[in-house]
Computed example of a mutant assay.
Amino acid sequence: MTTANTEAGPTRGATVPAMGEELLSVQGLVKHFPIRKGLLQRQTGAVQAVDGLDFSVNRGETLSLVGESGCGKTTTGRLLTRLLEPTAGKIVFEGRDITHLSEGRMRPMRRDVQMIFQDPYGSLNPRHTVGKIVGAPFKLQNVKTEHGVKKAVQGLLELVGLSPEHYNRYPHEFSGGQRQRIGIARTLALRPKLIVADEPVSALDVSIQAQVVNLLEDLQEEFDLTYVMIAHDLSVVRHVSDRVAVMYLGKIVELADRVSLYEKPMHPYTLALLSAVPIPDTARKTKRERIRLQGDVPSPINPPPACRFHTRCWKAQDLCKKVEPPLIQLAPGHQTACHFPENATEEQAADALKAAETAGK
């Protein structure tokens, strides 16, 4: 893992800033990819990529989705932007249900919901100039600009730290960090309200990651943007997030504000993830125990019953194999899906077991 937060300046304040009203709400979101075999292409199973997510995002905040590869983070991001059709559940944006909007009715919504892709080169058409790439949203949405598209594009390039002279260049003439800035400029063209950033710095050099992270934060402050950040680098997540949702095998196992989650993680899986984050202070590093999970991540085609983490959890008991733990609030703003949470008071542990009894009935 990288340590971009050490280069990107100070992290957000110790307290979570007051956010605006709810911008996005997700209820019971499910995405299963069917597996088909034979001449008749009959469905023989399904990849349960996302299997029942509930969360909301407030206007102006950054919610990060973290977890191992294959946990469903990117699929969730593509569902939120409606690049994928949900199998079940509901997505509500600004009070409007957009879950199953047709392509035509979804088209105007594209102005408000945009995505930054992980690969800064693969997401740019190598046959098009930067001007054409960044100007494409204006053309696709038939948006008129005050001084013409070229001036608007050059202004966007300056906004993300590039030169207006780059207008006629092609993607292969730029470095990885510059390409990602081009992608960010394209995303900002229509002044969206929600941006889903899918691993926006993971493909970049460590020395460039901090610059792009700082750029995203500056843009958020300037344009009142709301981010859903998808990442696996917990040091970057700690720097940019207001709240963090930890995913495991298609489900959210913990959701809390950044300070609570990093200082007092309650789910064993979260504790294991945090134990792998390198600490620059060598004196502290010797005192922290690295938790190494046993076994591989189970297949999303046939996930374990009840608690999906019980096959790798050192605290698992018979209850974990029989009853799925509900995602409940054990502390103010801190939700956990675990029968035997870590760093929990006696009262919180009792609440977790009571929720298990209710779920098992």
Rank of each mutant, 00 (worst) to 15 (best):
P34E: 05
T62D: 06
L80S: 12
G95Q: 03
V50T: 08
L84F: 10
L39T: 05
L84T: 13
D54W: 03
S56D: 09
T74Q: 02
M115Y: 02
R78G: 04
R78Y: 00
E68F: 01
I98K: 07
R82K: 09
L53R: 04
G67T: 07
Q43K: 15
D54S: 11
S25V: 07
I98L: 05
A49R: 00
T129I: 00
V113L: 11
A18F: 15
V26E: 09
G72Y: 07
E68M: 02
L79C: 10
P17N: 04
G104K: 15
D119A: 04
E85I: 01
S69M: 06
N58S: 13
L29Y: 08
G104Y: 14
V30Y: 11
K73W: 00
Q114P: 13
S123N: 08
E21C: 14
L63H: 07
F33R: 02
R127Y: 09
M19W: 03
N58H: 15
T76L: 08
L83E: 13
L40D: 11
M115K: 11
I35Y: 03
S56R: 09
L80W: 14
G52A: 08
C71K: 13
L65Q: 08
S56V: 07
Q114C: 08
L40R: 12
R36M: 13
F33L: 09
I116P: 00
Q114D: 06
L65K: 10
S25P: 06
G20T: 00
D97G: 10
S25Q: 12
N58L: 12
D97Q: 06
D112K: 11
R82G: 08
L23V: 09
P34T: 05
K132G: 05
I98Y: 01
H100I: 00
K73H: 01
P17V: 03
P34A: 05
L79A: 13
P86S: 12
G45D: 03
P86G: 07
M109I: 14
P126Y: 00
Y121L: 05
E85H: 09
R107P: 07
G95D: 12
Q41R: 10
T99K: 01
G67W: 00
R36S: 14
I35T: 04
D112S: 12
P126G: 05
R111K: 11
R59V: 03
K132H: 15
T44L: 06
T81K: 11
Y121S: 12
T129F: 01
M106A: 04
P108T: 10
S56T: 12
H32D: 06
G104N: 14
R110N: 02
L80C: 06
S64A: 11
E22P: 15
G104A: 15
L63A: 08
I98W: 02
L63E: 15
K31I: 14
V66G: 09
G52T: 05
V92I: 10
F117G: 02
R42G: 10
G38P: 00
K37M: 10
D97V: 05
G72S: 04
K132Q: 13
